[in-house]
Amino acid sequence: MDQTAVEVLRIIEENGRVAVPTLAKMVDATEEEVQNILKTLEDEKVILGYSAVIDWSKVEKQEGVTAVIDVKVTPQRGVGFDEVAERIYRFPEVKALYLMSGAYDLSVVIEGKTMSETARFVSEKLSTVDTVISTTTHFQLKKYKHDGVVFDQGEEDHRIVVTP
Rank of each mutant, 00 (worst) to 15 (best):
1 M>H: 11
1 M>D: 09
4 T>D: 04
4 T>P: 06
5 A>K: 11
5 A>F: 06
6 V>K: 13
8 V>M: 07
9 L>P: 02
9 L>N: 01
10 R>V: 11
11 I>M: 10
12 I>P: 02
14 E>N: 08
18 V>G: 09
20 V>I: 13
22 T>L: 14
22 T>M: 11
23 L>Q: 00
23 L>N: 06
24 A>Y: 08
25 K>G: 14
27 V>C: 08
27 V>F: 03
28 D>Q: 14
28 D>C: 13
30 T>M: 10
30 T>I: 12
32 E>N: 05
33 E>W: 07
35 Q>C: 11
35 Q>Y: 12
39 K>S: 09
41 L>C: 03
41 L>Y: 04
44 E>S: 12
46 V>E: 04
46 V>F: 01
46 V>P: 05
47 I>A: 01
48 L>Y: 02
51 S>T: 10
53 V>G: 03
53 V>L: 02
54 I>T: 06
58 K>D: 02
61 K>I: 01
63 E>F: 01
63 E>H: 06
64 G>N: 05
66 T>C: 08
67 A>Y: 05
70 D>Q: 11
70 D>V: 03
72 K>N: 04
74 T>A: 08
76 Q>I: 09
77 R>F: 13
82 D>Q: 08
86 E>R: 10
87 R>Y: 11
87 R>F: 04
90 R>H: 10
90 R>V: 04
90 R>I: 04
91 F>R: 00
91 F>N: 02
94 V>F: 07
95 K>M: 13
97 L>G: 07
98 Y>P: 13
98 Y>I: 02
104 Y>T: 03
106 L>G: 05
111 E>S: 01
111 E>R: 00
111 E>A: 05
114 T>R: 00
117 E>S: 14
117 E>T: 11
117 E>W: 06
120 R>E: 10
121 F>D: 09
126 L>E: 02
126 L>F: 02
126 L>K: 06
127 S>K: 12
127 S>V: 01
128 T>C: 08
129 V>C: 05
131 T>Y: 10
132 V>P: 03
134 S>H: 06
135 T>F: 05
135 T>L: 07
136 T>R: 12
138 H>M: 10
139 F>K: 03
140 Q>R: 08
142 K>I: 03
143 K>Q: 02
144 Y>N: 07
148 G>S: 05
148 G>W: 05
148 G>L: 07
150 V>K: 09
151 F>V: 00
153 Q>C: 08
154 G>Q: 02
161 V>M: 13
161 V>L: 14
163 T>F: 13
163 T>E: 15
